[in-house]
Design a protein around this nucleic acid. Structure first.
Lengths: 147, 147
DNA sequence: AAAATATGAATGAAGG
DNA sequence: CCTTCATTCATATTTT
């Protein structure tokens, strides 16, 4: 028997948070919801939105409003940066090396791919399609209450 | 009070596994060049710089923009950390005078950042607005776990 | 080979 | 909003 179970089932999710020293660690469920919201078009939620999202995500783990706020900020900023960098690299260095292993097949003749993300290979992001899902996540009237 | 759900069985081993191969392993030539740039004063290259460096380093091995980006970030942070450790050790032994120089920032100062104002500010929304009270923000959850 | 260490990668948090 | 700091995780490398 592997003496591994130390009977100290740490409820890390809560204990460390109470100490106030550990940063928020989103659970898979929380991430899924956040990404769904982002995909739905939400970029900078208002305080009201933040409060609601926080309340919903709070069911899956400890979370605060600022976590939601920061998550959207970071998510947006980093997607921007990745796109920026990839686009720059693509325009600057088309094909410096003969060892190509990408086999980019373009259908229709649109060379302008919008491959974001760092890598040149995998790491595909969810692309919101038109009418992909009936996600009515924004029943709020358009108000300008940005921080 | 043993009301802990525990279950820390982390299958994280696969969650963030980059299916595609190993992480970037810089060649000696690449490291030499990167360190030369760092010594030259470069700390946080812009996307343009990153692209150039990537293009140059690409001659010596497979590399991407994010590798350069991360390298500088890590290198800088860890150099600072080491410097702090050394300074700490130095100030521990041969220092007859307890006088501490006031905020002697050489070129960066890695002091802990102060908290801004998330402690108890907004996010305290109890009202939905005038007559606006019919909306479910999360149609994704058919069931509630709050019981 | 196992443990310790070094470092690439990722992201939460905060400053400006 | 954009940039940067700081912490953490995962893995390659070195040490014992």
């Amino acid at each position: 028997m592997t003496a591994k179970c130390a009977s100290i089932d740490l409820d890390v999710s809560l204990i460390q948070m109470q100490s106030g020293g550990t940063r928020w660690n989103p659970t898979p469920e929380q991430i899924k919801l956040l990404e769904a919201l982002y995909q739905g078009g939400l970029r900078t939620p208002n305080p009201v939105q933040i409060e609601r999202i926080t309340a919903e995500l709070g069911k899956y783990g400890r979370i605060e409003g600022k976590n939601v706020f920061y998550w959207f900020q970071n998510h947006k900023a980093r997607k921007q940066k990745r796109s920026e960098l990839v686009a720059l690299a693509a325009s600057a260095a088309p094909l410096p090396h003969p060892e190509i292993e990408e086999t980019k097949e373009f259908h229709g003749g649109s060379c302008k791919r919008k491959c974001r993300s760092w890598g040149s290979l995998e790491l595909d992001v969810e692309e919101e399609g038109p009418g992909d899902r009936t996600l009515e996540l924004f029943p709020l009237h358009p108000e300008r209450k940005q921080m």
